[in-house]
Amino acid sequence: MGEISLGQYYPTNSILHRLDPRVKFIGTIVYIVSLFLVSGPVGYLCAALALFALVLLSKVPFRFILKSMKPIFFILIVTMLFNLFLTPGEELAHFLIFRITREGLVLALRMGIRLALLVMGSSIMTLTTTPNALTDGMERLFSPLKLIKVPVHEISMMMSIALRFIPILTEETDKIKKAQIARGADFDSGGLIKRLKSMIPLLVPLFVSAFRRANDLAMAMEARCYHGGTGRTQMKPLTYAKKDYCAYLITALFLALAIIFRVKGW
């Protein structure tokens, strides 16, 4: 109850929250591309500063941005260690079989910074955009693909439905789990096989209910004459405002800057 958060959206009212999701999506891609364009310390400093400015603009507490780092923290450390020890080059130090090279150190740092900025940068998009707005934006952005028969609308509808079902199924799981615990089920002890077996009383009812819900939803959609994307209009069509054009301009400038940095090798 109330604890289930959809994605990681942080509800508040900032300029970034009000931007068109398309701008945020393209902005994020540009940011990621420029992270791979620049390779010198000045470039990374600029990227970090840009990120910092965005965080301030988004009004999202900084700890939420850091939280997004949690799932990839392990990968980040492993990547850095591999780069640190396995890059051949001028040796700086060694102990036992491990050698640290100058090139390895530089590469590890670069990788670490890149990954960290990449994850934090994209988390700003997910923190300031509701999943529904995001799928809407993507539908519009990818709509040219309809020309080559890609079912853009259907894909985005499937994404929205999937997202909508996450909290429902979480709640359902909780309910069924409690009902089985009340019948003496034990989900937390025993070996691997026993634990897997103990999941059956949870998974079977969950799948049954998921299918039932999917069926109900399909019927409700049919009853309202849903027939896919052709000729369908939106209740709140996305329109660009002045601030969105400004944001595009800033994004373009940022990209240009990154290209200059790349050429100059800063």
Binding site: E172, K175, I176, K178, A179, Q180, A182, R183, I200, P201, V204, P205, V208, S209
Partner: peptide, 13 residues
């Protein structure tokens, strides 16, 4: 203490 939840038929498996 036996507890029968709302719509208990959803727990059959």
């Amino acid at each position: 203490v036996g507890l029968v939840f709302q719509y208990p038929e959803n727990q059959l498996f």
